[in-house]
């Protein structure tokens, strides 16, 4: 797909986006349009609010007696969350992504990485949509990263433009540490694209992609302890 879709194409997909029923390819091209269309963005917001409201219908059920203490124990053992400075943090991430795009578009070359400690998919999608608008990209693809035992571990976004690049967000890696990232082409050859450091099982990195997005069949991240993969259809 080389052209961005228009409102009539996207309106039919918005309910699927809002409920989570959109497949990866539909999701990517529809989000690419939503990024630059305020009307569709507003409609998606309303549909998402409706879909979230359906969750309110689940009945309340009292958990087992030790539930509260178990949650508090898990929170005690968990690493400290990022400071509650959402707006500053969001501006920083968007600015960092915009800088990444401008450097890549300007032929900066080399693997450039941007790290974000908060990696919730919806937030990332919002940041990415703004980035697409900055970079005037041609199209997006997205796929889920999974572990060797098929657990969801994050999301990969691929951007076809000049230059092309890939954004990897890891939300639940099985192990911390450095991960080598590779783009695997349709012939099975592995092209190194960079290294990312996973901390507290999360991390977000962007790299310049020297292959056409259509030629990439898989994104693969591997460390000494784990392998994460995300498959891409044509």
């Amino acid at each position: 797909m080389s052209e961005l879709p228009q409102c009539p194409d996207v309106r039919g997909v918005l309910p699927e986006l809002a409920t989570g029923a959109a497949a990866g390819d539909d999701r990517a091209w529809a989000l690419a349009h939503v990024a630059r269309c305020q009307d569709c963005r507003r409609e998606l917001h309303h549909l998402t609010t409706t879909a979230d409201a359906v969750l309110l219908l689940a009945p309340s059920v009292d958990p087992p007696p030790q539930f509260e203490s178990s949650v508090l124990a898990r929170l005690d053992a968990a690493p400290a969350p990022p400071p509650r400075r959402r707006f500053v943090a969001r501006r920083r991430v968007v600015a960092a992504l915009a800088i990444a795009v401008s450097l890549l578009v300007g032929g900066g070359g080399g693997a450039l990485f941007v790290q974000s400690r908060t990696a919730e998919d919806r937030r990332l999608a919002g940041q990415y949509r703004q980035t697409l608008a900055v970079a005037n990209g041609r199209y997006l693809k997205a796929t889920t990263l999974t572990t060797a035992d098929a657990r969801p571990a994050g999301t990969v976004f691929l951007y076809q433009g000049n230059p092309s690049w890939v954004l990897v967000t890891i939300t639940a890696a099985p192990a911390d540490g450095p991960y080598a990232a590779f783009a695997v082409n349709r012939a099975g050859a592995m092209h190194p694209i960079g290294t990312c450091q996973v901390t507290n099982r999360t991390g977000t990195y962007g790299y310049q992609l020297r292959l056409a997005v259509a030629e990439v069949s898989q994104i693969r991240l591997q460390s000494a302890d784990a392998v994460l993969t995300g498959a891409l259809s044509r």
Binding site: F67, S70, V71, R74, L75, A78, P81, P82, P83, R84, R85, R86, A89, T118, E120, R123
Partner: peptide, 13 residues
């Protein structure tokens, strides 16, 4: 339990 841990982790968002 996992939901509360994630909420705590993402509270800044």
């Amino acid at each position: 339990q996992e939901a509360f841990v994630r909420a705590w982790r993402y509270a800044g968002g």
